[in-house]
């Protein structure tokens, strides 16, 4: 066993990379839940984003276009959920599960021709001298663009929810859709927009896996990341910066597990692989056992029907 082979700076840099998919999906789901909708289909939207992104990136040779396609794919899929739950008022839990199932099937169909295809190279954003700062350069300034985009999205969501009128309305809809409706806000349209945003973010998260991190397409490659993203939102008590902290914590755990394996720690692979899921459960328990309000939007998961 040789733990000295683990370099702390490299470790931090790689945890940021490994956390980016769940960070993107998590921050999207946070916005959805803030609007009062529980979409359990994150996994399905991520995997659809992964296949759309990979396919377009490989065909055009452009990672940027791949990510755009992934966001559109994820958003399109999420709108199926949006239509069913918002317009036809179907049960959100069941519809979300159906979305995951459908997304897994659809992505496998779309991705048939791309199994074993080599992905494209996505280099770091050239930040010149910043990248050469010892330590900090490795940690912060040698990443690919999506790592920075994900941080910008978190900052944007935080500022948007906290300081803008749109954010206030979104939160109002999530806390009490009847009150928001009485004030004249279009509850369903706002929720559909939030759902589409969440789908786009989940799509980006999935595509980050297939375009940057792996980079390849395999069936079911998200392997439960969507569910971790859902847990992350609860973990964060619906606060954007805590989603970031939580995502990096999970990313760190994943990276540490890989490093421990590489360093030859004598623990069965399976025990290390189940660690992130067990840790998520422990965190969920800690959060839910805490006293006082958990921060969950009051209308979360409930049906809205304009009966007037």
């Amino acid at each position: 066993m040789d733990l000295s082979s683990i370099n702390l700076f490299v470790l931090i840099a790689s945890l940021m990379v490994s956390a980016t998919p769940i960070l993107l999906a998590g921050i999207g789901e946070l916005v959805v839940e803030k609007s009062g909708v529980l979409n359990l289909g994150v996994e399905g939207m991520m995997i659809t984003g992964a296949v759309c992104g990979f396919a377009i990136a490989v065909q055009t040779g452009s990672a940027g276009l791949g990510f755009i396609a992934a966001a559109l794919g994820g958003a399109a899929l999420s709108l199926i959920f949006g239509f069913l739950t918002q317009v036809l008022m179907s049960n959100q839990v069941a519809t979300g599960l159906a979305l995951t199932l459908f997304g897994l099937g659809l992505s496998a169909l779309l991705g048939q021709g791309f199994i074993g295809v080599k992905g494209i190279d996505v280099g770091p954003v050239p930040l010149g001298p910043l990248a050469d700062i010892p330590g900090l350069g490795i940690v912060l300034f040698r990443h690919d663009g999506m790592v920075y985009v994900s941080l910008l999205i978190v900052a944007g969501v935080w500022a948007g929810l906290r300081y803008t009128r749109a954010g206030l309305i979104l939160r109002a809809v999530g806390e009490s859709h009847n009150a928001a409706h009485a004030l004249g806000y279009p509850v369903i349209r706002i929720r559909l927009a939030a759902i589409a945003f969440g789908g786009a973010c989940a799509g980006l998260g999935g595509a980050y896996l297939s375009i940057v991190r792996v980079p390849q397409w395999t069936e079911g490659m998200t392997a439960g990341a969507g569910w971790i993203a859902l847990a992350l939102v609860v973990f964060a008590s619906w606060r954007p910066w805590r989603v970031l902290a939580g995502a990096y914590l999970f990313g760190g755990l994943t990276v540490l597990q890989l490093n421990l394996q590489a360093a030859g720690v004598k623990v069965p692979v399976e025990v290390l692989s189940m660690a992130p899921y067990l840790l998520t459960i422990v965190v969920l328990v800690l959060i839910s056992s805490g006293k006082g309000a958990s921060g969950a939007p009051a209308s979360l998961g409930t049906r809205f029907h304009d009966s007037g």
Binding site: L84, A94, T95, L101, F102, G103, L104, L106, L109
Partner: peptide, 22 residues
Amino acid sequence: LPGAAIQAFQGMLLFFLLGLDV
């Protein structure tokens, strides 16, 4: 036909069912 087609098919079935519940 790819094996995953049936999964997409099952997902669709659930969509229609939940939607028609209205």
